[in-house]
Amino acid sequence: MFIQIPWFLFRLWKGKKGIRRNGSGWVKKAESLCKYEDVISKLTSMKEQRVKEFLANLISFNNTYRVNASRSVNIRRIANDLKHNRNLRLSEFIIKSTLKLKINDDFEVNSKKLLAEQGVYPVIEREIFDETAPDIVIAKVINTYMGDEQTTDIQYINGELFRGEDLYKNGRIYSIDEIHTELIEYHNQLILLFESLQKVMDEHVELNPQYKNINLKSTSYNMDQFFKSSTN
C-alpha cells in the first residue's frame, strides 16, 4: 500500500513499457511493475515538502523494520519463520536436557557425552498404528537426541516425512517479550508512516470518504498477567 498509492497517485508508472492508461488490464500491469526502488527513485525528484517527509519516513521504516540484518527481532523475519517453519522457537518453552539410557541395569549412556566423545547420538523409533486397525502400522516417530537438542521426525508408510529438524534449521530463538515489544513498536511506526502518507493524499485527493477524519492512536498491552508468576 505504501508504495502502490504514490505509484498510482503520481502516475509513477508512466514510461513503463506495455502500460497504456485505460487499456485492457492496464491497472494490473502497472501494479505488477510497482517496485520499491522505482518508487523511491521517482519520489526523490519531487519537491513537495509532504512528499519529502513521507519519503524519509518510508525509507527509515523499510531500513529499520523490513531489511535490517542487525536487528535480531523483526516482523519480516518472524513472518518468514512462521510461513516456512509453521512454528517459532520461544526461549520460555525451551528446556535443555540430556538423555540418559541404562542398558542391562549396569551400562549408562549419556547423550551429550556420547556425542562429544564419539560423534554419535541415540535415535529411538516408535510405531504409530491405525486407530481403526490396531495391527496396521501407518508411521514411525523418530526421536533424535543430539547434545542439548531433541528433534522428532514422523515417517509415514506412504513416504511422507515431517522433519523435526526443520524447526531448528534457522537457529533463531525468540522470547515472548521481544516479539511483543517489536509488535508494539512496528504497529506505532506503521501508524506514523500511514499518517505521513495521508497528508500527501490530502493535497491531491479532493474527496476520499474512506479516509476522512481518521484518528489512529498508538497503543500498548501488558501481557505480564499471562506469562509471569504472581509469586517470587
Rank of each mutant, 00 (worst) to 15 (best):
V200F: 00
E131F: 09
I128M: 15
D177P: 05
Y145C: 02
E182L: 05
T98A: 06
I75Y: 09
R71L: 08
Y156F: 15
A139W: 01
E178F: 04
S70P: 08
V141I: 13
I95V: 13
S70I: 08
H84M: 14
R86L: 12
R71H: 10
V120W: 02
K83H: 15
E131R: 13
F107N: 04
R172D: 01
G171F: 02
I142A: 07
Y156L: 12
R76P: 11
I75K: 10
D153Y: 01
D148Y: 06
V200A: 05
V109K: 03
Y65E: 00
L207I: 15
I75E: 07
R86N: 15
E165W: 06
Y121R: 01
R76E: 14
V109L: 11
E160S: 14
L183C: 11
I103G: 00
N104S: 09
D153C: 08
A79G: 15
S72G: 12
R163W: 06
L183P: 05
H84V: 14
K199A: 10
V67A: 08
S111R: 00
K140P: 01
A69Q: 09
N85F: 12
K140R: 12
I179E: 04
N80V: 14
R163C: 10
A139N: 02
T181C: 12
D135G: 11
V137D: 07
V137Y: 07
E185A: 15
Y186G: 01
L115Y: 06
L197H: 02
Q198W: 04
G159F: 03
L114E: 04
N143Y: 10
N63R: 10
I179L: 07
K112R: 14
H204L: 10
P122D: 02
V120H: 07
D130E: 12
K199L: 11
E149C: 09
D130Q: 12
G147N: 04
I94C: 06
L190S: 13
V120P: 06
S91H: 05
E108P: 09
L161C: 14
E127Q: 12
I179P: 03
R126A: 13
E195Q: 10
D177E: 10
Q189H: 13
F129R: 15
K100V: 00
V137R: 12
A69W: 03
V205N: 09
R126D: 11
R89Q: 09
S196W: 01
N63H: 07
I191G: 03
E203M: 13
G171R: 04
N110E: 08
K113Y: 12
S97I: 03
D153K: 03
L114Y: 01
A133N: 15
D135Q: 12
L193F: 04
K100C: 05
E182F: 03
L193H: 07
S111M: 03
V67Y: 10
K113G: 12
I179C: 06
K169P: 11
I157A: 13
G164T: 00
T152A: 13
T144H: 05
